[in-house]
Design a protein around this nucleic acid. Structure first.
Lengths: 334, 334
DNA sequence: GTTATTTTTGCAACCGGTTGCAAAAAGCTG
DNA sequence: CAGCTTTTTGCAACCGGTTGCAAAAATAAC
């Protein structure tokens, strides 16, 4: 079928090593030889088999791209950026959908079977047990959107969710509200827990502010809508910090159906600043997460780890900022 | 590092073939041998290297999943479904982002280098030259969301876009409108051309109906919004068939900003029925495309082709139907 | 308990590449 | 042109598996 090294060698009348050398950069081949081989390769339409090569070089140039989040539109951007950034460096993403997988060992085995050079875990809801399991196997791992901790056990790239919680709380406090709400994402996710911790920390400094806390069971429109439907029935807060933009949009839809006006009756602040948040029919005030920076940094990090597998784990944290749009009343002018 | 076949063989005190056989189903091994080998493998944490295996079996169990559409949220669903369907069958998607690639030969080489077992092209906007290039290399190919033709040169799975155009036109005609519009996606996409052909065919049967035709330059919110902004300035039609749901949502946003009410001043019918179309703050009337069916069918087809590479090309077309929501006035009761 | 038949096992070659090493070729010096 | 150095080339072993074939072991038949 496809031409092999041997075919090219025969046609060019040279040894197999010579052919191999013309196709590996940095190898010693004379100009004359190179031309001869390239001509034969051209004629046969030869291209080297990277998997066979990987057997000796121990590099497949494949990176496991692992996520459990295939419902939040923000992740389409995430996949777009990751694939591009990896491709630019000659790496190929082997995509793994962990939506309904609970056993890290399974994924570890899968990645080992395919000898990926490294693994990128892209999720804010996946248990850290997954990234640790990969590390324990000696694979380079980066956990993008993972939990920031001052002593990370694997490389983490993303944002400081605790600080985001604080930011959201501060911005509600600055508006002089007396009754606020935290409507988080899945309670099991570290991102939810951290955002809540930061939010609660600031609110606790203001004993006069009442704070309701509740959680949606997924980062999805429906979950956000359902949860806000429930909250709206019974003395809703003046404004909510929602787990993310998709939840916020779900909540907005619920508020509209309950005839509560936004931002006058109820304000909403989201998190992510996904493209859709800026759409005019949504116009969501939200905390911008620097996705692009996180992804580029993650890819650079995984590339660095290929040459330096035992690199000391670090956390790369990018700052967020609030994008004011139409779902939160402007601050009172002082 | 990782245990190999040989390590297991040594530990179990048997030949390498014996180990290999216990890990390939259908091979002849005695119970006693199997237990011995499995014990040793267990102790060493051995799992076979699928890439080395592929060298002799000529099966990598990797499928190239190729798309150029990383902006339309519908494609997150697409990737979700594809990855799940492939994983269920023990196949792994090697994801390729072709957003800014124009040369099919590049992609072909890449897929060859990685010896993928087959290629799924998932796009309604990618030139057929890509799927053909893969086929010409002898790779099994399925073009999902590709152009339906009665004599397809590669396997195509999806919908009949011409018929969708007709459906949309008929539904506008049935409403007694006298001025309608076709606001298509990128003009170069076969899906756009086909939808327009069907739409125009029906409208042509009604000489009393005026029809405007225009195109957005991408399947994106912004493009839809921009195009509708333009249309709304100057005698807009009573209703538009938009290229897809994302374009429709962009158009809705523009209409709102122009103070045109939907559906009273201007009606909109989209295509896809993405999850978001059902969100209460969007509530888009649209033509439902059976994505899930197309994807399952595509995966079954590619699997079938693994055993039967020269299978005669077929087109698998699934019917669409209109989902009536709030952006198109109900039909007049007769 | 032999012998014939079936099942299990190991040997060795192969899949498509890479690479250390030594021989051959080319380039320098004088 | 001999003698030395450097570059280029081919040989052969290896990467981690599979598999056809024949020998060995187990089972069945008499």
């Amino acid at each position: 079928m496809n031409a092999t090294l041997k075919d090219v060698a025969n046609r060019a009348g040279v040894s197999r090593s010579a052919v191999s050398r013309t196709f590996t950069d940095g190898a010693s081949v004379s100009e004359k030889m190179r031309r001869k081989v390239e001509k034969a390769a051209e004629e046969l339409g030869y291209s080297p088999n990277l998997l066979a090569r990987s057997l000796t070089t121990r590099r497949t140039k494949m990176i496991g791209l692992i996520s459990n989040n295939f419902h939040n539109p923000i992740f389409l951007t995430v996949f777009d950026q990751f694939t591009k950034a990896l491709q630019e460096r000659g790496l190929r993403p082997l995509l793994v959908n962990l939506s309904d997988e609970t056993d890290p060992q399974n994924s570890v085995r899968m990645m080992r079977e395919y000898s990926v050079d490294g693994v990128i875990v892209a999720s804010s809801t996946l248990s850290p047990a997954f990234s640790k399991a990969f590390r324990d196997q000696g694979m380079p791992v980066v956990h993008t959107f993972g939990q920031y901790s001052s002593a990370p056990s694997v490389h983490v790239v993303g944002i400081d969710n605790v600080e985001c919680g604080r930011m959201a709380a501060r911005s509600l406090v600055a508006r002089g509200l007396t009754h606020v709400g935290f409507m988080g994402g899945p309670i099991a996710a570290t991102s939810t827990q951290d955002r809540h911790a930061g939010f609660a920390e600031i609110i606790a400094q203001h004993p006069d502010i009442a704070c309701d806390v509740s959680y949606a069971d997924a980062y999805s429109f429906d979950a956000g809508r359902r949860e806000m439907m429930r909250l709206a029935q019974d003395n809703p807060a003046q404004a909510y910090f929602c787990g993310d933009d998709v939840l916020s949009i779900g909540a907005l839809s619920a508020l509209r159906d309950c005839n509560l006006s936004v931002p006058d009756d109820v304000g909403i602040i989201g998190l992510n600043d996904m493209e859709m948040a800026g759409w005019e029919n949504i116009d969501l005030t939200t905390i911008h997460q620097p996705i692009k920076q996180s992804i580029n940094s993650s890819v650079k990090l995984i590339v660095a780890m290929l040459d330096e597998p035992n690199r000391y784990p670090e956390a790369r944290i990018f700052p967020c900022d609030i994008v004011e749009r139409g779902t939160l009343r402007p601050k009172a002018e002082n």
